[in-house]
Every structure is written in C-alpha cells, then in structure tokens.
Amino acid sequence: MAFRKQWVAALVLAGLAGPSALANGWSDEWGGKLLLTRGISTVEGAGGGGLASWALITGNETERGIGGTAHASWVELPDYSFSAQGVALGFHDRFELSYTRQAFDTEAVGAALGLGQGFTFEQDVFGAKLRLFGDAVYDQDSWLPQIAAGVQYKVNNQSAVLNAIGAQDDEGVDLYLAATKLYLDRSLLLNATVRATRANQLGILGFGGDLEDDYQWAGEFSAGYLVNRRLLIGAEYRFKPDNLGLAGEDDWLDVFAAWAVNEHLTLTAAYVDLGSIVTFEDQRGLYFSIQAGF
C-alpha cells in the first residue's frame, strides 16, 4: 500500500516537474539563492526550520530555475529515537513538493507495552507548498512577510496499533499557512505558521482520537538571529493537539543552530523538548540534521 502511494507521488512529481521544465526550456538556470534563504528541512520534509514549516521555498533556485534538497534528520530521546529522510523540489522559488519517510523507534518502550523491542512506527509524508505573496528577503522596505499555503498528506503504516491506542485514522491531511520574514536591519528571521491538523505526534500516533477527532488550529513559531552569512541560531515552539486519552501529548520546542557549510550543505543541531510521548515524560534530547541542496 505504502509502496503504491510512493509511486503515485513520484508520478505526480514527474507530471508537475516535466511540463514546468519544458515550458521554460531546459535552459532553466540552477542555483542563485543567498545562503540559508532556502531554509532547512523540517521533520515533515517541508522547507522551514526543524519543527515549523516556513513560507520559504526549498532549493537554491531563483524565480528562473528549479532546485531541490535532500535531508536526513535524527532525534535521540531518552526513551525513543526518531528519524526522517526525504527529498524536495522547488520550482521557480514559487512551488515546493516534498516526500519524507519518518521512523519512530519505540526501543524498550515497545517491549514494555507488549509491542516488541524496537517496535517502529513509520510514516510517509507527501507535501506541497505554494508561495502566495510577499518576499521574505528583498521587500526590506515593508514589514509584510512572505506568505505560503501548504498541505501535507501523511500515511502511517501501523493501523492496528493506532486503532488500539484510540486513534481514529492511520492517514490524515494537514493544511497550513506560513508567514516568514527576514528583518535584515535587525539580522532577525521570524516565522509564524498556523496549521489545521488532526495528527497525534505529527501522525506518528495516527489521526484524531477518543478525546477529540476534529481538526484543530495549531501555531508554529520560530525566531532566528543571523550571526553571520552561514550561521542562524534560534528557537522554535510548536503547539500540538492532544487527542488521545491514553497518550497525552505536549507542545514541542527547540533551540537550534543551522550552519550553511556552503551553498550545497547545511548542518543543523538542536536541543529539543518533545514533552510526554506515550506516557513517557520529559522526552528531551538532541536533534541533528544534514541537508544537501542544489
């Protein structure tokens, strides 16, 4: 099932990329964005911070080209480990398509809950994002941010277990609106995102629950300070629903440093506090991400 969906995604990608590239001729130029202005990749695959999806479009391309990124991210927590790997394409600094596969390893908790040592939830996240208006980088004579609308379709591979813990669905769709702006005269990058979601822990624990099954609004906020052209340090806060009676969840936060080694490689390290996950409290740990871009 998941396999088939991946092929559908590949076809959609090719279908969109093909005509766009042909319409503009293969003379489309590569690269050209300023360092760090493509963002990094979120654990859900979108261009953004680490946890919050931003309005920036991934890839090094300008409005005259096509670009892309690939990322691998890891989060090491006291009782779990989480990883995400994915690819994304940016078209003309306007439209973004992404695919990311997440794996949430329950390690010893899996054994304790009778699921088996190292029981792992896996989830595919297909994303699309369209930049609507505003310019985060050049419109420095206006406070207005760059605005983008995005959608993420998520498919979890553990429906039986999700059912048992009270989740209503093993797949779900998130919609979000992101506003991002570089306030260059203060060397500040600010982001605010509002997301409509039914996801439990991003969807790792399914969608909807016994406590709440409807869509809820959840905010995602990031603030970063540009130390130099290559280094952005900052923090993020992500509100989350709390739908499951059995497995209460908390908002997430992180403190990060993103370092553009060069135009093709960005490394990010963060301290994350993911709160309670399936009754195990205080899941604080380290996040590391490597992103390659063209």
Binding site: Y138, D139, Q140, L184, D185, R186, S187, L226, N228
Partner: peptide, 12 residues
C-alpha cells in the same frame, strides 16, 4: 555583520 545588514536592508 549586523551593521553590514543595515546597508543591505536598504539595498534589497
């Protein structure tokens, strides 16, 4: 760098 950005903000 922060003062460089003051100029760049006017040029952007």
């Amino acid at each position: 760098f922060a003062l460089q950005n003051r100029l760049l903000a006017r040029l952007a």
